[in-house]
Amino acid sequence: MTSERFAALAEKYMDTIYRLAYSCTRSTADADDVTQEVLIHLYREEKDFQSDEHVKNWLMKVTINQCRMLFRSPWRKAEPIDDYAETLQMENEDQVELFTLVMGLEKKYRVVIHLFYYEGYSVKEISELLKIPEKTVRTRLFRARAKLKNILTEEVSDND
C-alpha cells in the first residue's frame, strides 16, 4: 500500500478502530496498542480493497482479532471507566451514564452493542465479523438490552 493511501485510510479509520478496541478491552492503553497494531497490519496489507466499506470491514475484523489476542495475555490491567469518562468531555450526564453503563457490561455484550448501535451493523454483519451464529448475536443483544432496560427502549427487529 502506498504511504499516501495508507495515511488517508489511517486518518479516516483510526478513531473507528480505537472505539471498537476500547469497547473490547475497556483500557485506553490496550486500545492504543490495538490501534497501532491494526494500522501496521493495514500498512503491510497488499489486498486490493474494492471500496471504503471493504476496508472498514477488514479493519473491524483485524481489530477484533487483535483484541482476542490481547485477552490471552495474563497481565491485562483494568482501568476505571468513570475516570476515563470524565476525560471525554461529554455534553451531559445522560451521555456519561449511558457510556458508563454500556462499558460496565461484559465484553461479549458491549461489543455487540457497539457494533449494532454505534457502527450500525446488522445482526447478520455482526455475526460475520465476530464469526458467531446470528442467533448468538440476537441473544447477546437481548441480554444487553435486558441489562440496560431502563436505558435502551427500542426493540431489535428480525430485519435489523
Partner: peptide, 24 residues
C-alpha cells in the same frame, strides 16, 4: 432521539491518540 443516536453521541467522544499514528 433513538437509542442508536444516543449511543453514537456518547461514543463519538472517544478518539484515538494522534501519537498512535505517529508511532506507527
Amino acid at each position: 432521539m433513538t437509542d442508536r443516536e444516543r449511543i453514537q453521541a456518547a461514543f463519538s467522544h472517544l478518539h484515538a491518540s494522534p501519537e498512535d499514528l505517529t508511532e506507527v
